Computed example of a mutant assay.
Amino acid sequence: MDRSYVEQIIESAQWISDQIGRRTLDVGLVLGSGLGDMAQQVEDAISIPYGNIPHFPVSTVEGHAGQFVIGTLEGKTVIVMQGRFHYYEGYSMKKVVFPIYVMKQLGVKALVITNAAGGMNRGFQAGDLMLISDHLNMTGDNPLLGVNHPELGPRFPDMSQAYSRSFRALAKQIGERMGQERGEPIRLQEGVYAGITGPNYLPPAELTMLANLGGDAIGMSTVGEVIAASHTDLQVLGISCITDMAIGEHLEPLTHEQVVAVANRTKPVFIELVRRFVQEVSV
């Protein structure tokens, strides 16, 4: 992590700050595949394509709009990543997590990270939401490799509560209330997210291995971003939309279009859960 990396973070944040009138930001949201529509609910919004921001990469994945949306949601000022960057796109892990440091530099105090994931826990089903309690970093990389800069965070950051327990507790309470109001329980699970590089979906033997290691869901994002968030002292709520079942012994062919289709069907519950969390979280 050379000095120019820190300078690029500062320059990107300064450029964004100039565009938004230097307003203070409360909550950052990273929206995964098929979930970007939530950005349309941000009020008084300013949209900034990633390609316009100095030093930013550009998202290349279908279903990712590739822009920041900044405005007001449930009484708080939010910055929404409508699309993220992935290791499998060819970006370095430092580039993948670059926006997390920029959001911290802009004053964000809490982070909501979402993704589409395959369910490895046999008690799950497609369409469930899973609160991430922990993760398995199976990417073989780490965004903190190299020289550490104390202005970003400590050399050896603690990961014992990388996914905030208090944030998960609040999300569970909100989910229970939503279920009571709807007259049927919200399928809100909790578990461990296994992060892989992708872009291929895993074969049965590897899925069985990861399930045996303790993984409840699997996806191609999130772990690097959460490591960076922990490094820079951002509290995180992680939510996976379980778009398919990835049980090694019963694996069926899967396409990205199927993943996005299930994420789209789950959107109303997902969006309501996140909106209420943003409204009620203390920052």
Rank of each mutant, 00 (worst) to 15 (best):
E252K: 11
K95R: 06
I79C: 02
I20R: 11
M178T: 00
G75Q: 14
Y101A: 03
L234S: 01
V108Y: 06
L234A: 01
V223S: 05
I132Q: 06
T222W: 12
G179M: 14
A171P: 03
L213E: 00
V259F: 09
L188A: 06
G75W: 15
A263V: 04
S33K: 01
A205T: 15
M38I: 00
V236K: 08
L131T: 04
I271R: 11
M38N: 00
F167W: 06
R84Q: 07
V80I: 13
W15F: 09
F56T: 03
G118L: 12
D18Y: 04
E257F: 11
M120S: 07
I16N: 08
G34Y: 04
V96Y: 09
R3F: 06
K104V: 00
G195K: 10
V80D: 07
I70T: 04
D26P: 04
V78T: 05
M245V: 00
S164A: 13
V283K: 10
T255R: 06
A116G: 11
I247R: 08
N115Q: 14
I174E: 06
I10E: 10
M178Y: 02
S17W: 08
V283F: 11
V61H: 09
S160K: 12
Q189R: 15
P253A: 03
P185Y: 08
V226E: 05
L111V: 03
D18T: 01
I271D: 11
K267D: 00
G219F: 11
D44R: 10
F167M: 05
R155C: 00
V112K: 15
S92L: 08
V223W: 07
P268F: 09
E7V: 01
G119V: 15
H135S: 07
V112I: 13
Q125C: 08
H86P: 05
S166E: 07
V42S: 03
M1G: 10
P199E: 12
M220F: 07
V97P: 01
K109H: 04
P54W: 14
T255M: 05
M120N: 09
K172L: 04
Y87P: 02
I79P: 00
L234W: 07
E257P: 02
G127P: 09
Q41M: 07
E252V: 09
